[in-house]
């Protein structure tokens, strides 16, 4: 197995060595359940066989709760405890470390996303038979969420690489991702047109909205992929910085 995958595997499994992952996943799913079915009347009052609510709430939940918690330890903890030295002096390239860490964290987030698949499965194909669901927006929505997860995890990884404090990594990731998700809402009320354009261009939620409607726009796909690539590159550079600083 390549070093990248070995690191990813270890990273993924280490999430389950502490109760944190369990707590976050469970609480996250429970909250999602309540919000989806009951918040403001929730799913039942919408009277539509739509998972729009899911795609509306899930990104925010991922951003402010799950991704910061999952990514905060990635490199910050390794730096703080010194295990990074041990890891990097194994025959492994720096980019393999970054990629391995990234894949390990992304894996966990994808598992959480996968868990939310139980909603459509139970509601529309399984036990409840609530009606026939339009599968197009569902698949597009999940594709959007996967891309979104890829981008947000890379942002979290970057901040974890830049600091050696988990707490700082958590809060910076929390605020940056929170801002990116909420930006779409605020963009319209920004008085300066130029700023408004920029804000709506970089906001995550505006781009996710089209996925949730079943529209796969290459611009959105490329946007998320670019953010991911950019943050991974930056993380790689940040990790390399140790050599010279």
């Amino acid at each position: 197995m390549s070093p990248t995958l070995t690191i990813a595997k270890r990273e993924f499994r280490s999430n389950f060595d502490s109760p944190l992952a369990y707590v976050v996943i469970c609480l996250g799913l429970i909250m999602l359940g309540f919000i989806f079915f009951f918040y403001n009347g929730g799913f039942w009052q919408a009277d539509r066989a739509s998972l729009g609510q899911l795609f509306f709430w899930l990104p925010g939940g991922l951003s402010v709760l799950i991704v910061p918690v999952v990514t905060m330890r990635l490199l910050a903890e390794e730096k703080r405890s010194g295990t990074l030295e041990m890891l990097i002096t194994l025959p492994v390239r720096d980019h393999e470390v970054v990629l391995g860490k990234y894949l390990g964290a992304l894996g966990l987030v994808l598992v959480i996303l996968l868990a939310t698949l139980s909603y459509p499965l139970f509601m529309f194909w399984g036990w409840w038979h609530l009606g026939s669901l339009d599968s197009g927006p569902l698949l597009a929505g999940y594709l959007g969420l996967i891309l979104y997860a890829a981008a947000t995890v890379s942002v979290g990884l970057l901040f974890s690489t830049l600091t050696d404090s988990q707490v700082i990594a958590f809060f910076i990731t929390f605020f940056v991702l929170g801002a990116l998700v909420l930006m779409g809402n605020f963009a319209n009320s920004i008085p300066f047109p130029a700023v408004r354009t920029v804000a709506s261009f970089i906001s995550f939620d505006a781009r996710l909205a089209s996925f949730a409607r079943g529209l796969i726009n290459t611009r959105d796909v490329i946007y998320f992929l670019s953010v991911t690539a950019l943050c991974l590159m930056a993380s790689f550079r940040a990790l390399e910085r140790r050599k010279w600083a």
Binding site: G82, E85, M86
Partner: peptide, 20 residues
């Protein structure tokens, strides 16, 4: 990489993954 393959290194304070 070639160097690291041939070295066994124990850093100060033996930083290990405690949860493993």
């Amino acid at each position: 990489l070639e160097v690291r393959k041939r070295i066994g290194y124990l850093p100060q304070r033996a930083p290990l993954y405690g949860e493993m």
